[in-house]
Design a protein around this nucleic acid. Structure first.
Lengths: 225, 225
DNA sequence: AGCATGATACTTGTATACAAGTTATTGCCT
DNA sequence: AGGCAATAACTTGTATACAAGTATCATGCT
């Protein structure tokens, strides 16, 4: 399990959440493995209270399973949950891009284009670490442009499940394709071409689809059933 | 603030959540009012720990706002949040009813029809208290029928905000209309009439829309801004 | 009077002690 | 050896003590 320093001003609970989330997503904490409040609190140099509160929060996102008086475990990967998260995202992103086509504001379009420029810059520098947050920001900007920022937060809270199999899947889709998708979507919005925008968005979201069978075959213990 | 007995087997945290949720939704705890962990723990006859954990959970649903070292407050009603919740629900329910039209299973249709029968029975008995859970169950069954139960859970977690203004608004839509809607939706699904199903669902979801200006005028302190 | 200042009484955040339940182990009995 | 029972070593749940920050109010100074 990898450890970080506590950021200044960060309270113990959020620190615990940050460290645990990182280690769960990057599979440093294996799906199915046991974690205990005592063990974690000594590892993180905290008392049980903030660690416990962190575990409770992660259990609400179904990343941790707490069995009362028995133990806590890193949840195994639930493929159905991931597919459902993708369904939710697909449906909501399409609804949002449709709204965006109805009344595209120049201010919002500028922000989106600026973001794409940054994405391209990262591509040239091959700075993939900086690329992912920008990808995320692009979609956030899209939701913000139609006043649906909170909806995006809901989606994002579901995306953690997706992050875990992205870690597992070595060959994730090329950032080049992703940036192209983004550019085309903005193009469609500017033209107010709802139909095209939805087709492009659907293809974009479905790009992330991973091959279940391969992953389950390679890491059977990480998955439910 | 109304109090209940602790159910057998219910732990202190869930009990605190249940009582607080009830009192927030029914406006026994006024939006904007201060609540403190100490005060609540003595009211509920619990220690601070489970009460604190309950407040943290409610703060995740934006029903409570925790200001570190300053105090905790019942969140004021955010109309934009409610509208956005309705947007999410509208979009997802339509997507689900569309899926249901593609391959309506007899088993699922039977469950839905049985549910409607129960709704009608409640209507005859004028048992509104039993009606609301059935309304909820109807939509849950619909989501389950297309394997999207978790999506429904996400929607439902957003619905608490809606419940609060339903309490405020004395004249909520007549159950009679709601049952009619449900019947018509099932009819459309059986006929695999996607277009009709979506129209009916849209009207059904939008029925709950409340008049913002009236409510804000009557209870200005309960709302943000 | 008005303002600064310090004590006090709050608040939530964190640490720790104890309670209650589960699991594994150990040792005895058959 | 096998099985059963007591026990010890865990687990999370809850209660409480202490830490640290904030707001209020009183007091004294200008």
């Amino acid at each position: 399990m990898k450890l970080f320093d506590r950021s200044p001003g960060e309270n113990a609970r959020n620190y615990a959440i940050r460290v645990l989330l990182y280690n769960i997503i990057n599979l440093e904490l294996a799906p199915g493995s046991a974690v205990s409040e005592n063990e974690l609190s000594s590892t993180l140099n905290l008392s049980r209270t903030p660690v416990r509160e962190a575990l409770i929060e992660l259990s609400k996102s179904s990343l941790v399973e707490i069995l009362p008086q028995r133990g806590s475990y890193i949840s195994k990967i639930d493929y159905e949950r991931i597919e459902e998260a993708r369904f939710m995202r697909l449906v909501l992103e399409n609804a949002v891009v449709k709204l965006a086509c109805e009344s595209p504001e120049p201010v919002d379009l500028k922000k989106l284009k600026d973001n794409i420029s940054e994405q391209k810059f990262c591509l040239e520098q091959e700075d993939t670490a900086r690329f992912f947050p920008l990808d995320n920001e692009f979609h956030m900007l899209l939701f913000q442009s139609v006043n649906k920022a909170r909806t995006f937060e809901v989606i994002q809270s579901q995306m953690v499940h997706f992050d875990r199999i992205r870690t597992l899947s070595l060959k994730s889709s090329k950032p080049t394709k992703i940036v192209e998708d983004h550019e085309n979507i903005i193009y469609a919005i500017e033209r107010r071409d709802t139909e095209l925008a939805e087709i492009l968005m659907t293809r974009h979201i479905n790009r992330h689809q991973m091959e279940k069978s391969e992953l389950v075959a390679a890491f059977p213990d990480y998955f439910i059933q």
